[in-house]
């Protein structure tokens, strides 16, 4: 099954800036890998249920006991930019 991939669209979804060379290389490599991976369709019939976790657990609960949070300065210590106990980011409206 030949695979056509809209690399620019996928990169946009992944929030990943790629150079034109990277896009070309990925287009070829992903096609090869996906053609190989598409083999899963040969054996996965409708009757087979999917597995998300090999060792399933249901409703894992622990006692709801409040404990102190991490100090704010430790949480912010690795941040590239901070303002008044908050992570600072550039404007969030996309510039066209």
């Amino acid at each position: 099954m030949p695979v056509e991939i809209d690399i620019e669209h996928v990169a946009r979804l992944a929030r990943l800036e790629l150079t034109p060379e990277e896009m070309e290389r990925l287009r070829a490599q992903l096609r090869l890998i996906l053609e190989h991976a598409a083999k899963v369709g040969e054996v996965a019939t409708a009757e087979v249920p999917p597995t998300a976790w090999a060792i399933p657990r249901v409703n894992v609960l622990r006692p709801d006991e409040p404990t102190p949070s991490m100090p704010v300065e430790e949480v912010l210590a690795n941040a590239p930019e901070v303002e008044e106990d908050r992570f600072k980011v550039p404007r969030i409206v996309e510039v066209e």
Binding site: N78, A79, P80, E81, F87, P90, I92, V93, E94, V95
Partner: peptide, 19 residues
């Protein structure tokens, strides 16, 4: 995503910064 930890490369807005 360049917000809470690790590398940040600046951009015109948050989406460009992240990418």
């Amino acid at each position: 995503d360049g917000v809470r930890y690790g590398l940040r490369v600046e951009g015109r807005d948050s989406v460009e910064m992240m990418a």
